[in-house]
Design a protein around this nucleic acid. Sequence first.
DNA 1: CTGAAAGCGCTAACAA
DNA 2: TTGTTAGCGCTTTCAG
Lengths: 334, 334
Amino acid sequence: MQVTIREVAKAAGVSPSTVSRALASGGTVSAVTRERVRAAADRLGYQPNPAARGLITGRTGHLGLIVPDLLNPFFADICKGVQARARGLGHAVFVSDAERDEGLELDAIRTLAPQVDGILLCSPHLSSEELASLPGLTDKPIVLLHRKEPGFASVTADLTEGMTDALTHLHALGHRRVAYVGGPRSTWAAGERAAGIEAVAESGLLDIVRVGSVAPHFDGGITGAADVVLASGASAVVAFNDIVAFGLISRFTARGVRVPDEMSVVGCDDIALSGMAAPPLTTVSVPKSHGSRAAVDLLFRMLGTPAVAGEPPLQRVLPTHLVVRGSTAALERG
Amino acid sequence: MQVTIREVAKAAGVSPSTVSRALASGGTVSAVTRERVRAAADRLGYQPNPAARGLITGRTGHLGLIVPDLLNPFFADICKGVQARARGLGHAVFVSDAERDEGLELDAIRTLAPQVDGILLCSPHLSSEELASLPGLTDKPIVLLHRKEPGFASVTADLTEGMTDALTHLHALGHRRVAYVGGPRSTWAAGERAAGIEAVAESGLLDIVRVGSVAPHFDGGITGAADVVLASGASAVVAFNDIVAFGLISRFTARGVRVPDEMSVVGCDDIALSGMAAPPLTTVSVPKSHGSRAAVDLLFRMLGTPAVAGEPPLQRVLPTHLVVRGSTAALERG
DNA sequence: CTGAAAGCGCTAACAA
DNA sequence: TTGTTAGCGCTTTCAG
């Protein structure tokens, strides 16, 4: 089906192993031979078969990326970043959308593991216990993306600080009573955000109204949450993420409450669309491409330097920053 | 690194080939042996090495998907759909984001080709000539997704009809002068849409104002286009896609023009966020998961039945439909 | 129904 | 510097 190394060897008048060496980076071949081999390879359109190579090197040249939902632009962005960095390092990436289903996620890990050199796992839903069982499932290195867990290498963003920044911003604008619409309760990221909210609540800086949890997708009971926010007397609201923020704004608008004049809204993630919305969304920006890049780099480091027992895995925490756009405004007459 | 077929064979007291047969679907093994092998495999946590298998069967069990930009939720959605269907058929999928760059796209095809059984290509940017050169690059089957090209199997949506539906809807609401903000000029999809717009223009049903082309992402000169629309005297606008529509609405809002009261807006694609926007977007819905599914199925059919020379490749065209939400309204006092 | 042997395309010792 | 040999893990003839 493909042109093999043997045909190239024949065409160049050398042995297959010489072809292999000539085409490899560290191969020890004479310049003339290398040129002859290259020419022959080009002429025949030779493409090395990665499966055969992998069989012997133990490296596949593939990475696995598992995300909970590509429909959430946050994860699509992650995916793009991972893909770009992996390409730069000569690796192709398998993407698996786990559809927010723990069973599918575990399946994906099991299925992907034997075909990749390492796995990047965006898994807000898996329990700590399930995560802990992973190293038994596969010996391939795993990097957690946007989740931190003892015993795992990870790259995360400082969401706690992001939330306090958001609240501080609202306070500076004169808001004193602020609602928080949380995300799925059991999630790691939800806990991180809540910690930031609670820290501010306890400091007494702001009066915080906690408006339960909504699913962070498009039909997740956001309408009801918006109505609760409206009834609470809050003049501003921080949302679990940008999608929830969009949902809130949509409902506010439908009820004739103008954003930001009558209600300030802050999102989280800074998905690409948030700058395009009407009004453009003030949001806590999570470093997506930078985080993806860092995660891929961390995984590669682990590939080069297999884990030493007793040495704790690297956990990198990236800063967030608040992007102030048009959905927040100063409160008139405190 | 992994447990091999030989260890399973030893554990089950049979030969490697028997293990292979026992685990394969069509293997001719006695029920007892099969059970014994299965038990041993389970106990040892055996996972067949797909690379080794692929080397001999000529099948990788992988699909390649190439998209121009995952940041566009339309393609993220496609990706999700392809992934879901491929998983159902036991295939993993490589995703490659070509970053709207023809060179990267060609590279991706070249790189992916030897590692997959077939390729799903979302390529609005490649010229017809470049596309035509693809079969020389690889003999792997290719299905074009959301682009139709002579000589290629494809799955597309009827955008022309979608556009005429959108305009008909606006006409029914009393609009008589409607702007069209087009996308990148040279794109296949742009041509399809333009055909629908022109058909209506020629019919004389509506007065169409063509407002040039904007890049279909977040900074693509949409602000300027919005101002041109406003100056044109149109009471409604059809946008190249939902993202452009969001950008227009954002600018309209910033200039104090209310949507839909003073300006109706129609998008195209029906990305997940469009129902969440404020106001929720009226849009031409393109069947994304259905299209992805159809494309994967078509690719699998080609894998089963290699192309017969002289027989034209299958080209499937899916219907679009207009989703009327809150961004369009009847024109007061025509 | 099962085992032995060959070999997919490639790389990595080891000799030459 | 180059060729020869062996073998990665698996499937698939071919005998038995």
